[in-house]
Design a binder for these strands. Structure first.
Lengths: 159, 159
DNA sequence: GTCGATGCAAAGCATTTGCACAGAA
DNA sequence: TTCTGTGCAAATGCTTTGCATCGAC
């Protein structure tokens, strides 16, 4: 799912297979979701959808995002701020998160060495990894020089 | 804090320094908390404290656990089930979690290679790691033979 | 006697659900 | 026409807070 079009297709198939209906709310939400690029919260999604479809409420956004997750076009992430965030599903390769506590940016990373060690740790306990969550919370070493610091609230997307 | 006594001492110091008072509720809760060994939820803590002090309610447990965290005798963990869990603080060395999806046991692990790689990932983004969360959710490879499977709900503690 | 701690109930959040109506198929 | 989706409000689950009273110092 590297483009809205791909996601729309996959969602359409899923809906057809499950006897679900195509609506403008789902359509618009999917578009907004992709436009936001990643790590969007329910509030952000709702705000953007309402810009186009004023009547939409939380229930629809919650229900639709759950549908997107089931359809495989979105992934759900829960960070420590208590807000569930969503990002476009990018195939079965996954990535972990590096969160800057100074500028609130969320970077993504993926490290084969770490992945390998995880498998070893599991094996030692007679376990087979199913999924994992790995988040690093960090401080900027550039201090005031950090180009993002002033703006804050930015969200870095794809690798 | 490898024993209740140590924790009691540290908590006493913290309370003295902050003009807080010693009460039997806090006393009993700290004991129960250590007796449970780790990964205890508010409900579990409340249930055990009520066995000794019937009148205690959620508010006291929540407030006391927050105090324990501030005093440095407890660490707060939020897993994916939406329940906050607490474990005795074991110094500044920390560990991560390996959660069996079959028997609900929570194992702890710590891997220097993983820690090192994390630091490298951070450095590449001009960041200095402050803390992190790493949880692996896995399935038992022993199937029905798993000694814990039948019992479920167990909580494995210290390494 | 002070001032912090407790217990209860009410309030807060994020999220979910029930229900009547709207709108795809 | 049928049956799913929507929007609203109410309900839920976990956690926090306000307030009168209790109890440690």
């Amino acid at each position: 799912m590297h483009s809205v079009a791909e996601a729309q297709g996959r969602l359409a198939v899923h809906m057809r297979q499950h006897g679900l209906k195509h609506t403008k709310q789902r359509d618009e939400l999917l578009e907004v979701f992709y436009a936001l690029g990643g790590h969007a919260s329910i509030d952000e999604l709702l705000a953007h959808v309402q810009a186009k479809l004023p009547g939409v409420g939380y229930a629809t956004v919650y229900r639709s995002m759950k549908l997107f997750v089931e359809a495989g076009v979105a992934d759900e992430r829960k960070f420590q701020d208590g807000q569930t965030r969503y990002e476009p599903h990018m195939g079965d390769d996954h990535h972990d998160h590096l969160i800057c506590l100074d500028c609130t940016k969320i970077f993504e990373f993926e490290d084969p060495v770490i992945e390998a060690r995880q498998a070893e740790v599991c094996a030692a306990h007679h376990l087979r990894p199913e999924h994992h969550r790995h988040e690093i919370y960090a401080r900027c070493t550039r201090g005031e020089a950090c180009p993002e610091r002033a703006s804050a609230q930015g969200v870095e997307s794809r690798r």
